[in-house]
Design a protein around this nucleic acid. Structure first.
Lengths: 342, 342
DNA sequence: AAATACCTTGAAATCGGTTGCATACTTCTA
DNA sequence: TAGAAGTATGCAACCGATTTCAAGGTATTT
């Protein structure tokens, strides 16, 4: 193993102390310009590479941010991560990413790994089964900022970046009602997750405000994956009378339903109007194009990261810490799948 | 700032030396069971957290793997990353992820950051404009394994994990010919990238083997994004005679073309047969379903990561280093978009 | 009982950068 | 020109875990 070049080698080379070399390399103002240049030059010549372990050890700072998502393999999450990466890199932070696979156990284990990796901050979108945030306690105790996005815990005293899910589905429901739908079925995921619980509220409120009665039979909770369409359509077709509106909590599932409906000869939007969620690529590619709710995923990544990093820079993090929720703008996008000609 | 608990505190607590504590905590066999338990218990009681900086500094090992992808925000990449994450986590490695945004400059900068972060190994899928691998030299010099996947450099002396792009497109082309296509247009991305260069070969070989003459006019290089369809179809419809087969190097673009064709009243597969690439979700959701080439993305992530980690564990890494290319199985999936009834 | 082998533990040096405090050297002011 | 104020540099003590070498202790063998 070749020997590493250290600041001591540089110091010896230029005839100065390691202290000065360290200062010069980290742009400390109290070093003469001539000296700094001499040191920088020597560093380059010798092929010096700073040892972040030593630096982190001394500074007690890793310069990296941890991110825990339920699943990497999703259009939404990868857009969020793209936004996070951009922002983190700009600010000089590394991104350590892991996925909880929707499992609380794995989330706990990931959290612990992140903690031991001494990330300077943590960004989390909860796993579906996570019903408490005990496992983040080590972070809270050490005052390491934890920020949630999209899926945030219930009684949180951490900042969360979200959209207004209630409003989004309220609008979508109202839209379907305006299109003449009388029996609207809402398909969503695990109701332990705030995202879906909030949407359910929006659905109920909208019904109420428009003089409809909420019927629990019109709620379907389901995996919202690629194969969910068959299962959902199966249920729907057995309802009597059959629903004429479908509000599905993600576009993949909505597209899947669309296919299953077509296969059964049920036409969209005439027999059933459909609204999806997320404004994924797929919503623009299926036929008819899916009405959906625009979710600012990339932007959410940027905002969450920027906010976390501000917490780090700011001395008064406790103050920011106790702030609230950042709500991003989302919005209903109306396309053919829910548009009935008058 | 509360004081950190160190192995010295534990040592003092149980009346042993830091050496023994260190050994006990890292499961060194030469510690009596009784002693080990006493130490483990004390560690838990005191709330000890190992300091990886100190550990990494001493061991010269970060226990993390760097990954550089062109874009995080892609169905293919996120599947690859999911596979990598799973494998890395299982093996006890962290994942540091960054994106080059298809820019050589950013790839260089990311590489340098990864190097300074002292990742134990690096996984890279090249940016489109990357035409040399000079910037990885620091890794080569320090004998830190670098492994490429999907997009690998030309004259590489690193292991690469790929699929047989030539064969894949050969098969797709042969399939279209068998379906009666006479004028097949091939749409692909930047030909500097091995992936597309290889596919072009496959296309040419297949034409040749079936008695067709290759015509450069039938090659379209294009961004393969969501909006590419309009542009591509525009070009196609101006060709005389119009092509009757379309081979598009990713499903997003293929789906986009499909939509644009429909809008023009050109029917698929009757007027033009289409084959996409990747077997993305979208290929199964558009109408008609897209024929495509299955790309084992998740699996590629697993294999690439597993291989890299093996390099790390193995003492004889130079030997492995000089091995070759790992080719994963891909395969043509025939669906309606290219299936002409006899 | 003495010699040998094995098991368990410890002292001290190391990994390399940072920083509080001290000192030497300039420059400016009265 | 003495003294004050400011600037540039250095000393040495960290930050904590790991590891080499050595030593003390126990068990086994002859």
């Amino acid at each position: 193993m070749k020997k590493e070049i250290t600041i001591y080698d540089i110091a010896a080379d230029v005839g100065l102390s390691p202290t000065t070399v360290s200062r010069a390399l980290s742009n400390h103002p109290r070093v003469k310009d001539v000296t700094r240049n001499k040191i920088l030059h020597a560093a380059k010549t010798l092929g010096y590479q700073s040892n972040i372990f030593a630096s982190s050890l001394r500074k007690r700072k890793s310069n990296s941010i941890g991110v825990i998502v339920p699943k990497l393999n999703s259009a939404f999450q990868s857009a969020v991560l793209a936004g996070m990466e951009k922002t983190a890199t700009q600010a000089g932070y590394n991104l350590i990413i892991s996925q909880s696979m929707e499992s609380l156990d794995k989330e706990i284990s990931n959290t612990s790994i992140m903690f031991n990796s001494r990330v300077d901050g943590l960004l989390v979108s909860k796993a579906g089964t996570t019903d408490n945030i005990e496992h983040f306690r080590p972070f809270f105790q050490k005052n390491i900022p934890v920020l949630f996005f999209d899926r945030v815990p219930e009684n949180n005293h951490c900042t969360g970046v979200v959209i207004n899910n209630t409003q989004a589905i309220y609008d979508a429901t109202a839209h379907l009602i305006k299109q003449g739908c009388k029996r609207i079925v809402h398909v969503l995921g695990n109701l332990q997750i705030n995202v879906y619980a909030d949407r359910l509220k929006g659905y109920k409120y909208a019904l109420m405000d428009h003089g409809f009665v909420f019927d629990p039979a019109n709620i379907i909770t389901n995996e919202l994956d690629e194969d969910s369409g068959e299962r959902i359509v199966e249920k729907i077709t057995q309802m009597k009378p059959m629903p004429d509106g479908l509000l599905i909590s993600n576009d993949t599932s909505a597209a899947s339903c669309l296919m299953a409906l077509k296969k059964k000869g049920i036409s969209v939007p005439e027999d059933i109007a459909i609204v999806g969620f997320n404004n994924d690529l797929i919503s623009r590619m299926v036929e008819p194009n899916l009405s959906t709710v625009h979710y600012p995923s990339y932007h959410m990544g940027e905002v969450a990261m920027k906010n976390l990093i501000n917490h780090l820079d700011d001395e008064h993090q406790e103050i920011l810490q106790k702030t609230n929720t950042i709500t991003l703008r989302s919005g209903l996008i109306i396309r053919e799948s829910s548009l009935r000609k008058p």
